[in-house]
Simulated assay, not measured.
Amino acid sequence: MTAVDTLDIMLPHYGDTGLLQAAVRSVLDQTDKDWRLTVVDDGKEEGVPEWFASLGDSRVRYLRNEQNLGITKNFRKCVDLVESSHFTMLGSDDILLPDYVATIRRTVAAVPDAAIYQPGVQVIDENGAPSTTLIDEVKRRLYAPKATSRQVLSGEPLAANLLSGNWLYFPSICWRADIVKEISFREDLSVIQDLALIIEIIRRGEKLVVEPTAAFQYRRHSASLSSGEAVSGARFGEARRFFLDVADQLDRHGWPKAARAARRHLSMRLHALSMVPGALRRRRSGTIRTLLGYALSTSQR
């Protein structure tokens, strides 16, 4: 990314208007002003178009879908609207720290031939306070690289690592636009489409850069789509189908270690097991059976 490039920040929205406004304000507060924000609203909340119009900032583009597209189709629409060489798909409940754009532009300039850039992330709760969850501790301790300086990762070791436990934070990532436009998000996936895209990018020989500088706040709260589907157990059926399918693809690609990691998908199994106490408290017997069946299954097909 050269000094003249503008970072496209794409924001697919559906949900809480207050959190959306906080996310937008975090973009407006960037120290590096060379960005363009596109919000694609998949909801119908009153007053939102008027609020965006009141900002009076030519770098902010607001679009509202005539009909609800759903999460994956809205992601795909955002990708189609990207105009710059690099972009971020910001979650509408997440926050950019003030130096996010500056950090990303500096990192891309240092490693211009990569396709995925992961900055340092802070996890916050519904109220914006620092949060420590089991999921994030497992990511940090078991799977994420112990990066105190910038690292460049690629190939089968990276794919195997991510398929064992996905330690990336999707809304914080900066993507190279050309490769994402070529692949885009799979329409048959709703909660694991980010990992599917990442693995395909890696399979094609592209690089991932880890930049440890904290630049992003990722919000974990029970109202998120992924959390809701995890509580019901729905996400794990989709996950199992993805892992088994991608294992076959990686075997054909000549990456047996990554294929084995996909078939085991240990982190996702442990995640399902961790949801059982919540299902017990809610007395959801069907969900309990689904979660245990997924977590304890020995089938590799």
Rank of each mutant, 00 (worst) to 15 (best):
T2V: 00
A3H: 06
M10G: 13
Y14W: 14
Y14V: 10
D32Y: 11
G43A: 05
K44S: 11
E45R: 08
A53R: 15
S58R: 12
L63N: 01
E66C: 00
N68H: 11
I71N: 07
V79W: 01
S84M: 04
S84Q: 03
S85H: 14
T88C: 09
L90R: 07
I95N: 02
D99L: 04
V101Y: 13
A110K: 15
A115Y: 13
I116K: 10
Q118P: 04
P119A: 12
V123W: 08
L134S: 02
D136K: 09
V152R: 08
S154R: 06
E156C: 11
N161Y: 06
N161T: 15
N166A: 05
W167Y: 15
D178F: 15
V180T: 05
K181T: 11
E182R: 14
F185M: 02
A196H: 14
A196C: 07
I198C: 03
I199M: 10
R203S: 11
E206L: 02
L208W: 10
E211R: 10
P212D: 06
T213W: 02
F216Y: 12
R219F: 01
A223I: 09
V231H: 11
S232K: 12
R235Q: 03
R240D: 12
D245Q: 14
W255P: 01
A258R: 09
A258V: 15
A261S: 06
S267V: 01
M275L: 02
R281A: 01
R284Y: 09
S285H: 13
S285Q: 07
S285W: 15
